[in-house]
Design a protein around this nucleic acid. Structure first.
Lengths: 210, 210
DNA sequence: GATGTTATTGAGTAATCAGTCACATGAGGA
DNA sequence: TCCTCATGTGACTGATTACTCAATAACATC
């Protein structure tokens, strides 16, 4: 009964590695909404287009799948930051900078470390446009009551901080304020504070920029 | 069989209003850890020292209980802010201000709006010392995929913003940066970034203050 | 002490859960 | 052709889930 071939899954017989990636994507969508405890492996399997027992062939248990999902999340995040840092001298980015208008006090924002950091902030906002991105982050933080989750999140968070510091050349308090703004954008995105996905409006309404 | 009398509950026959408050407290502890979907009403009931079916006499369903819990959370938060604003001229607060050391650039921080805002920030840090406080917030934001939750959280968030603005006299960008720092402290608290509960160290390590 | 209200529970139900196990299916090498 | 090994599933289990319902014990009021 019911010939399956569900959802996004091109159905049959792919390499385990590809399958893992596919399942991770499905897992992220489900975990982002229902969290570690609230997500059923059945729902993940259905979304990935495979049977539920097969998940336990790819990962030993649900928590390990959650950990892998969080890990992949940070991976994707780091990749975006690196790519942004590489293309940081593009004219396009300079234009976007001025559109958002983030330099009220005497920082040298259109060049140097501040500019790089600002470009990264902008890239982060674009990343938050996917609705599961901020939710998944919240779920990761919320799941920090579990020791293993907390260890992973702390490690990746520290890696992220040093990565941003190295890529931008910014340190200390200014760096912390960057992450602080990011966290505020997170909760704003969860709340759908900007009905539109336009990052410029986010900056205006949420961060209170002029 | 099994004479019960569980946990914190002085067992028998209290007014429905008191009982609701007691259950809300238990619900916050459980929801903070396992989230809306992951928390069982059984666990809440056991913690509150009542039978599980009675929860559904006090609230029509689990989600409404979650909403009430989030609401109570914001209530408590607002109360703390108001109390802090009332006692803002205490000498003790002035001392704490300098201990944290939040005035690197020329803001007039030891008096006026900045001082009031800073006192509130400090009160917030003390509030985060209870481990369920930041987790519960994350769970509330994460549960924003649900329309009703999102509506509630958005409303209370806006109320909070205007309340802080009125109490402190701060507006716009500076106000947003206050909330941004708060959100960063939230995730730091979830991650147990400061192993100690000492707010001064939080400020130093997480916010990057000198 | 009868009457009505309010707090509270035991016993259930249908559904869903994570995880197991035996088995099927296909591709590639010999 | 047969063998091997990785990919994949159907059927199952024991536990847990939110939620219902009928019943009762404690209170108040006259």
């Amino acid at each position: 009964m019911k010939t399956a071939i569900k959802a996004s899954g091109a159905s049959h017989r792919m390499s385990a590695e590809d399958r893992r990636e596919q399942v991770l994507k499905a897992a992220m969508a489900e975990f982002a909404i229902h969290g570690l405890d609230g997500t059923s492996t059945e729902a993940i399997a259905e979304r990935a287009g495979i049977s539920q027992p097969y998940i336990f062939r790819l990962w030993p248990n649900k928590k390990d799948l959650f950990l892998a999902t969080v890990d992949a999340c940070f991976d994707r995040f780091e990749a975006v930051l690196k790519k942004t840092a590489e293309g940081r001298s593009d004219a396009e980015i300079g234009a976007q900078l001025q559109a958002v208008g983030h330099d009220p006090s005497g920082h040298p924002h259109l060049t140097g470390p501040g500019a790089r950091l600002h470009a990264m902030g902008h890239a982060y906002m674009r990343l938050l446009a996917k609705p599961e991105a901020p939710l998944m982050q919240m779920q990761a933080y919320a799941a920090c009551w579990d020791d293993d989750v907390r260890r992973l999140v702390r490690d990746r968070w520290n890696r992220l901080r040093t990565l941003v510091s190295e890529l931008s050349g910014v340190e200390g308090r200014e760096l912390s304020e960057f992450f602080a703004r990011g966290m505020l954008l997170n909760v704003a995105a969860c709340m759908h504070l900007p009905a539109t996905g336009d990052p410029a409006r986010w900056a205006h309404e949420v961060l209170g920029f002029a």
